[in-house]
């Protein structure tokens, strides 16, 4: 398949309506053709924009409660014992594949914005703090929830070099707790993890490069 033949099918692939046989052939071509992949990305973005411009209709009253009730229903897990919806997922990790960019140590003192969502159960709350690079740029954010389970989520939206970065939490008793790795690609990336650390005692969340140097920090306290 050449680019001309591929180009005649890219729109159907972007709209997810390309039949299986032609789809397989096209995917084979795309693997070795950055130009067609770029065009596919553009058309896929347009196809997404069509859905995003779709109708917006308020659902019947109680919709969100009915969804949450189904989420709380026990269900089997692959490779793990069954449990309640919340407990069964307590150790779930959440990774967003993305891009990254470089940096150096940070430790900026300004621009630390937090977001507190009211109404959280049991007095728990969300908090979102900006992730600041060594040069002082806002390159993402860190969100926390001090409920059950407690979780942290680090989001990168800024220029760091592509690669893998370690995510760590600094605790006020002097410990540094690793919570996983963030894969950065083209300026995007994310990592979330359930943790057994009380967020009220976490002073900062940091991204470390391969050498262990801090490339970005979010100060939570």
């Amino acid at each position: 398949m050449d680019c001309s033949q591929a180009g005649a099918m890219l729109d159907e692939l972007a709209l997810d309506v390309l039949p299986g046989d032609r789809r397989t052939a096209l995917l084979g071509h795309l693997e070795g053709c950055p130009g067609c992949r770029h065009l596919l990305d553009e058309l896929s973005e347009t196809a997404d924009a069509l859905l995003l411009a779709g109708p917006v209709v308020t659902p019947p009253a109680g919709f969100e409660d009915r969804v949450l009730a189904r989420i709380d229903t026990p269900r089997p897990r692959v490779g793990a014992q069954a449990g309640t919806g919340t407990r069964a997922r307590a150790h779930t990790r959440f990774r967003l594949l993305a891009a990254a960019a470089a940096a150096a140590v940070l430790l900026g003192t300004g621009g630390l914005a937090g977001a507190h969502l009211g109404g959280s159960s049991g007095g728990h709350e969300f908090q979102t703090v900006q992730l600041i690079s060594a040069t002082g740029a806002d390159i993402g954010d860190v969100s926390t929830y001090d409920g059950t389970p407690t979780w942290f989520f680090m989001r990168l939206e800024g220029p760091l070099p592509n690669g893998t970065y370690r995510c760590v939490l600094d605790v006020d008793d002097g410990r540094t707790v690793p919570i996983g790795s963030l894969w950065a690609a083209n300026g995007h990336g994310g990592w979330g993890e359930h943790v057994r650390v009380d967020p009220r005692h976490v002073t900062a969340a940091r991204l470390l490069d391969a050498s262990g140097a801090t490339v970005a920090t979010a100060r939570l306290r």
Binding site: S121, Y145, G147, W151, F153
Partner: peptide, 15 residues
Amino acid sequence: EALLAGLTFGDAEAG
């Protein structure tokens, strides 16, 4: 993305 992470963790409030 953070809200989706919270939902995936089984966090009712994020959900």
